[in-house]
Amino acid sequence: MEFDLEDSDEELVLHLQKGDADAFAELVRRHTDYLFRIVWRTCPDSEEAEDIVQDVFLKFYGQPRSFDLSRGVKFKTWITRVAMNRAIDVSRKKRPIPDYDYLLQQSMDDPDIPLHELEAKVASMELEAAIQNLPERQQQAINLCFYEDLSRKDAAEIMEVSVKALDSLLMRAKKALFDILAERKVA
């Protein structure tokens, strides 16, 4: 039986496990942008992030039963965890510096860019640098809850911590960010 475009991720995985390669294509189309963002925020190098997303999907394609449907975990939660862990490994080894080429390119393409927009871009680069300076777990909590807008329950499940522990990470992350940014403004 062929899959339906309205099927859930888990139903698509079931089709893939039965050998339907088109179900995999649909999963990739649904989640590539999201995974790229998640991975880039942990490992801020576009080329590395692209390689990680590709590897994670292809490994899953080679072994679709590595996702165990009987455990009741959402596919998105599972693949996010796999991709984030890969990104953390690469980031620990290579310590990439955020590539802001895309931001600078946008500014160069538009010679009439207003000063306040340029200032906003510089501020956003400072914010990125401040987040990159946070401890790993705090970064993950901020990335999942604020930038991907996941529920605290889903984020906690991805990070394999309780919701209470996640809240604590978020509070500490915000406090640390506030301090870093305030310090920069004073300096």
Partner: peptide, 21 residues
């Protein structure tokens, strides 16, 4: 937190993954 930038997903990434698969 709202002002944090993110680069766009490389063009055609999903289709490249599918083609390789």
């Amino acid at each position: 937190l709202g002002s944090r930038p993110i680069p766009p997903t490389p063009e055609g990434l999903a289709e490249r993954i599918i083609a390789r698969a």
